[in-house]
Design a protein around this nucleic acid. Sequence first.
DNA 1: TTAACTGCAAATCTTTTGCACAATC
DNA 2: GATTGTGCAAAAGATTTGCAGTTAA
Lengths: 129, 129
Amino acid sequence: MRYSHQRELILREVLKRTDHPTAEQICTSLRAECPRLSLGTVYRDLNTLVEIGKIRRVSVPGEADHFDGEQVAHQHLWCRKCHKLQSLYIPQEPLQQLVDACPGIRADDFAVTVFGVCSSCLAQEEKAE
Amino acid sequence: MRYSHQRELILREVLKRTDHPTAEQICTSLRAECPRLSLGTVYRDLNTLVEIGKIRRVSVPGEADHFDGEQVAHQHLWCRKCHKLQSLYIPQEPLQQLVDACPGIRADDFAVTVFGVCSSCLAQEEKAE
DNA sequence: TTAACTGCAAATCTTTTGCACAATC
DNA sequence: GATTGTGCAAAAGATTTGCAGTTAA
C-alpha cells in the first residue's frame, strides 16, 4: 500500500475527533482543506483503515456507520435521546473472559453496544426536575 | 393494535426459525403460503414486532438486519467464514453487572456481538486437518 | 513507467413511505 | 363505517463500483 494524501487526512480526522463521526461528517469536515474530496474515497479509505486496524467501525441499527480512532479497547452507548454515541469504559478483562469462555467457537473480536440515555442527557433531565 | 394475518404469519415464522433470518428471507419463505406478501409489509410488521418486544433485531455491520424470536436473553456470534449468525449463551448476570456498573448513564438494553468462526465452521476446519 | 488511488457518477442494496384498496373491529 | 393494515411502486439513505484521469514510487 502506498501513501495517499486523502487517506492520511481521513485517518488524522478520525484520530482527532472524539465524537465518532460518520463517513459523511468526515467528508464534510475535510472539504475545508481538501475541497474535491469525494464521499466515495472517504468510504474506500475508511474501509482500508478499518482493515489494517488503525480505526474501528461502530455500527448502530438504522444508522450510518460511525468511526472511532481511540486505540484503547472500549465499548459504546447509543443514546436514545440525542442519538449520539458515547464511549463506555467497561473493564475489558472480565468481558474478554466471558467471551473466551464460549465453547466451540473461535472469537477474535467483540463489541458491546449499550442502549439508553447518555450522561449529558441524564444530567439535563436531572437539572429539569 | 388489531389482528393482522400477515403480522401473525411473520411472527410465527421468526419464532419458528433459529437461523436469524432477514426481512427478505422471511418474505421469500412466507410467499409459499401467502403469495402476495410484500417486502414493505414484512419490514413494517417486523418493526412493529420489535417495538412491542415480541422479537429482537440483530444488526451486523454491512449486513441487512436479522431477526430473532428467542425469548431468553442471549448474544450472537457473526461467523467470518460462513457469514451466519450463531446464538451465544454468555451468562447474562455478569454481563448485566458490568453494564450496570457504568457510571453516569441509564442503560436499558445491551447487545454483545462476537466476531470470529462459528462452531460448525470450526468443526470443518478440524476435520480438514 | 506502472500500479495504486481518486473523483465523479451511476449502480446497488436495504429500508421507508405515499397512496389506493382491503380487512378488522 | 371508521380506522388500521396491505400491496405496490417509488423514494430515500448508505455504501459500493466502473471508469477515466491523477499520483506516488
